[in-house]
């Protein structure tokens, strides 16, 4: 419940402040968001599996975001930023889908 409230509060703050993304951060924010979404779904799945651990969740969330951003940063330095960010999005998207499928199996038994 606190997680949901936090989500809503964060969204409201974002709407209210309406900050502009710094130019240097612009390529990494969408990747970081996707990585965080992946961590969120992973945490939800772990919760349903009964092995949820807040420490693991926090570490996975942060490391997910940082690693994703790092990969894109590295790709930018190597000149393959666009392709690498696409790759990261694809991989994270697949993970989100498989996590969502596991959650669905838990909740709906189907």
């Amino acid at each position: 419940m606190i997680a949901l409230i936090g989500l809503v509060v964060g969204a409201v703050i974002g709407l209210y402040l309406d900050p502009t993304v710094p130019v240097g951060l612009a390529p990494y924010l969408p990747i970081a968001v996707v990585a965080a979404l992946d961590a969120l779904f992973g945490g939800l799945r772990a919760l349903l599996d009964g092995i949820f651990d807040d420490r693991v969740f926090v570490v996975s969330f942060l490391s997910n975001v940082v690693v994703a951003a790092l990969i894109v940063f590295l790709g930018d330095q190597l000149g393959v930023g666009t392709q690498l960010s696409t790759a990261v999005v694809v991989v994270l998207g697949i993970r989100i889908f498989s996590n969502a499928a596991a959650i669905r199996r838990h909740l709906l038994k189907a």
């Binding site: 989500l7 964060g10 979404l37 969120l40 926090v58």
Partner: peptide, 14 residues
């Protein structure tokens, strides 16, 4: 978890 979710919501909206 709440704090992290808040950060996520914020980032998504931004």
């Amino acid at each position: 978890t709440g704090v992290l979710c808040a950060v996520l919501g914020f980032a998504v909206v931004v």
